[in-house]
Computed example of a mutant assay.
Amino acid sequence: MSNTTADHHRSPLARRAALTFAGAAALTGLAGMYTPSFAYAEPAAPADMAALAQSATDFRDCPALPAGVDLARWRCEVHSAAPRLTVGKVTVALAPITMTHAEGPLPDGTSGQVWGAMHSAPTAIPGGVPGTTAGERARRLGLAIQPEYGGRSDFYTGQLSLRFRLLSPLLPQGCTIGANAPVDFQLKRSGPSQWISTNPPLIKFSAYDDTFAAPAAEHCGPMAGPLNRRLGLPAPSGNLMTYDATYTFRTYDQLPAR
């Protein structure tokens, strides 16, 4: 798949505009994926509004839209989550991920999507590179994992692709799980979605995928073999990504002028 949604019957404009995420999100194939089923339902009673206000994310990464679309019918959606990831022998609670994309109707009437951005941070993997790191050796032999957008997404269906960069003083900079072909997720809801707030709009949901295959880490230099054995990669099955997430949105006619 390229950086367009997987609908080959769309017009060239639709294919250019419907950029797929493989990304945040991923890890938000979810924000758009769930919008048709719950975003316009009757909202639930508000919870702690102070906490909700603190969790609202800004819209700095909203992407430019295709020419000729109706700004009032296109939404910029910002999705934030802290996933829990199991790949091979490793299970880790990832640092929070924020993903931004836009969606709305194209001039020809088809549904379009445009990718914005993904932000994440490294998370330490217990045990470091050898799996037994402790004490003074922890920094030298430490290992961290950081998800990155994989270049493909479809928020209407929950498809998402990610790469996972592996960081350590012992590894070259390009050492990555999914370096040549990203890890493809097909995210599914694990429970009902819920409106938390209407002003600002804030929607909560949970999602998971337990069907994806995890490839071996690549571009890891002479450490590639020992590292993949330590991580249990490649792992064609037995992998899992789960997370609780929220998303918020604004239509483009409500965004500040740039």
Results as ranks from 00 to 15, higher is better:
residue 41 A to P: 05
residue 213 A to D: 06
residue 20 T to N: 15
residue 50 A to G: 13
residue 118 M to G: 13
residue 107 P to K: 09
residue 70 D to H: 13
residue 38 F to P: 02
residue 237 S to V: 01
residue 210 D to G: 14
residue 20 T to E: 10
residue 221 G to E: 03
residue 94 L to G: 10
residue 174 G to Y: 00
residue 200 P to V: 01
residue 98 T to F: 06
residue 59 F to D: 05
residue 42 E to Y: 08
residue 135 G to D: 07
residue 218 E to A: 12
residue 94 L to H: 06
residue 109 G to A: 02
residue 242 T to K: 10
residue 96 P to I: 08
residue 99 M to G: 15
residue 239 N to L: 04
residue 180 N to F: 07
residue 59 F to T: 11
residue 216 A to K: 03
residue 131 G to F: 02
residue 134 A to R: 05
residue 64 A to I: 10
residue 76 C to V: 11
residue 180 N to Q: 09
residue 9 H to F: 07
residue 168 S to C: 08
residue 238 G to P: 02
residue 38 F to I: 13
residue 242 T to Y: 03
residue 32 G to D: 09
residue 197 S to E: 05
residue 127 G to V: 09
residue 43 P to Q: 06
residue 141 L to I: 03
residue 88 G to H: 00
residue 117 A to F: 11
residue 108 D to Q: 08
residue 131 G to V: 06
residue 98 T to K: 14
residue 109 G to E: 04
residue 23 G to I: 10
residue 203 I to R: 07
residue 152 R to I: 15
residue 255 L to Y: 10
residue 174 G to N: 11
residue 7 D to H: 07
residue 34 Y to R: 14
residue 86 T to P: 01
residue 41 A to L: 13
residue 12 P to H: 03
residue 8 H to E: 12
residue 220 C to T: 00
residue 2 S to P: 13
residue 170 L to R: 08
residue 68 G to A: 07
residue 233 L to F: 03
residue 88 G to I: 09
residue 38 F to V: 11
residue 171 L to H: 01
residue 19 L to E: 15
residue 70 D to M: 11
residue 29 G to L: 12
residue 221 G to N: 06
residue 154 D to C: 08
residue 142 G to E: 03
residue 35 T to K: 13
residue 187 L to Y: 11
residue 189 R to W: 05
residue 40 Y to G: 10
residue 74 W to G: 09
residue 15 R to P: 07
residue 165 R to T: 00
residue 75 R to W: 04
residue 56 A to G: 04
residue 130 P to F: 07
residue 112 G to L: 05
residue 117 A to G: 06
residue 146 Q to I: 07
residue 29 G to R: 09
residue 196 I to C: 10
residue 58 D to Y: 02
residue 71 L to G: 02
residue 239 N to H: 01
residue 19 L to I: 14
residue 106 L to V: 02
residue 186 Q to W: 09
residue 249 F to S: 13
